[in-house]
Amino acid sequence: MNIFRLTGDLSHLAAIIILLLKIWKTRSCAGISGKSQILFALVFTSRYLDLLTSFISLYNTTMKVIYIGCAYATVYLIYAKFKATYDGNHDTFRVEFLVVPVGGLAFLVNHDFSPLEILWTFSIYLESVAILPQLFMISKTGEAETITTHYLFFLGLYRALYLINWIWRFYFEGFFDMIAIVAGVVQTILYCDFFYLYVTKGEGRSQLSIPT
């Protein structure tokens, strides 16, 4: 494991914890897209089924359990515990337009036509677009709480660090996974617009106002 992969995982963990704590502490999920959180729970569930079949390392298993646990805890807080604060009127992205094409693509383009591999491929493709409902919701409301922008920053940074990790592994190990790389590039590109606003306007403002 190289430093980019490790900082990528820690950035991802930070994003997940920031969001969970924000909802728990403020007892509110205002401005948070429940649909994106459901998609992330689906990503982790379909990707980490190998928890049941193979043990890779304590770190690997621990992180997967934490990711799955936090994802479902976040979905529970949004749709059950703090349901009254869920802004359903602005969380209107049609996720079926994401899940169906991604599901089809996973069957067409994969490394191996086995159930675990198809599910892994599905999770890779889905993760690259899972943030769209959240970005769509922010563009509709025109603003995002500062803590939400930090969540998005670390979430976007994690896959960007993975891209560097893959460049590193290609150069030093000859490791190369086209599916993960292409999906990772798409995923990171979706954050570019947000990264620009985060860096240029994030400083010193209480709300990040995104031009609708």
Binding site: M1, R5, D9, H12, D50, S54, I56, S57, N60, M63, K64, Y67, H111, D112, S114, L116, E117, W120, Y162, N165, A180
Partner: peptide, 10 residues
């Protein structure tokens, strides 16, 4: 590709 290629990444 070798499907049993262990996926050590998250």
């Amino acid at each position: 590709d070798d499907p049993s290629l262990e996926k050590d990444e998250l």
